[in-house]
Design a protein around this nucleic acid. Structure first.
Lengths: 214, 214
DNA sequence: TAGATTGTTAATCGATTAACAATC
DNA sequence: TAGATTGTTAATCGATTAACAATC
């Protein structure tokens, strides 16, 4: 039964993973799955799967399991894949260009509508059918197109001020790739990526597992 | 006192964050910090900081706090920033090129020594002073240069087979950017990035906080 | 010394897992 | 119906926080 109790971030962060596995099952023409079978595939307990899903509703049926397509759609709705988030990329370096070119965000509800940089050498360059715009255009653009999300790939020293600027413009979410924890005195929601952190954890795990080498 | 008890991943994943904050303190010429002061800056409890650090050793001093430079170096050592991981990028699309161009990995101990793709149009193109090589050269290269880590930015349908291939070649770690959970029957350590997952969580948080819009 | 702050144990909290009655 | 599997409560486990004696 659907509950309006606060749902923990641990659960939320597992949802995209469920979504991916269900998508795979659909591609394999599997249309029914039990928590037990899914637990084997995903490497988590069946108990956790049932607990997680029941935060949002009783999507299964006793004696049967879960209908894959139905569950896929339900989780998609929870994650908002049918939303239309107007999204821009700020910082048109290699990473910014990579994000602007990545096709899979759109089918998850994130439409990239602009890309910005303050380097005159980059301004005007076409990336994925968009011309890189100068940062001078940012404020007008954000207001005119009601931009919801900014993907931030600017250098460290520049991140805080740009974040503050777009937050003041009313942007709702920041996807932050700079190696800095942004905190803003506004409502803007922030999700950090911190690629280097992830890589360092990989390094730790390797040295932990192969103590001799490196 | 240093302990050889198993350290939880929750602690490990916080280390790079400590490392960044300590680096910032050094840049600000702050050379001494208490867990209380650091907790204010980082937004976690002082208790957690002391617990975390004591997994690795008594780096502080009663009545004084922690020496920033010493602690920075200790955490750096734990994370292995003085290692030399021979690293390659597999998949020279936009994301692969962005990773190959990113300068900050090297100072964390990850030296990118090669970049590979099977697209003939990309092979030979120079990225950050390296020529993109054809995948046919991969096996020889990995053996010859004792490659430790592969950053994987190949398309979904190709990820599993490439992962298997480099695992068999004895690569120790995989940094996986494909939206697929790789699991291999080998010792290879895997760290997933799953950018879309992170973005979808941002979308969830936004819709949770701004229920009206989008 | 007196004050500050760690290292560490104990208490609490939250998340995961187990168990089982409900029910398809 | 009988068998299977959910939804959900209770038990366990692990991680975080609080407390404080040790000590600089």
């Amino acid at each position: 039964m659907a509950s309006n109790k606060k749902i923990s971030m641990a659960v939320i962060r597992r949802l995209p993973r469920y979504y991916r596995y269900l998508s795979d099952l659909l591609l394999m023409d599997i249309n029914r799955i039990s928590s037990k079978e899914l637990s084997t595939r995903m490497g988590i307990t069946a108990s956790q799967i049932r607990q997680d899903l029941n935060c949002f509703g009783g999507f299964g049926q006793q004696g049967y399991g879960y209908n894959v397509e139905l569950l896929f759609n339900e989780i998609g709705n929870i994650l908002g894949v049918n939303s239309k988030f107007q999204t821009i990329v700020i910082g048109a370096g290699h990473m910014g260009q990579a994000l602007a070119n990545y096709g899979n965000f759109e089918k998850r509800g994130f439409q990239i509508v602009g890309i910005f940089d303050n380097n005159p050498k980059l301004v005007g360059k076409e990336i994925n059918h968009m011309k890189i715009q100068h940062m001078d255009n940012l404020d007008d653009f954000v207001k005119k197109y009601h931009v919801d999300i900014a993907m931030l790939t600017v250098p460290y020293d520049y991140a805080r001020e740009v974040a503050e600027r777009v937050a003041l413009l009313g942007i709702k979410g920041l996807w932050n790739f700079s190696p800095m924890d942004l905190k803003l005195p506004y409502d803007t929601v922030i999700e950090n990526v911190h690629l280097s952190d992830s890589l360092m954890v990989l390094g730790y795990k390797i040295r932990d597992k192969f103590p001799g080498k490196t």
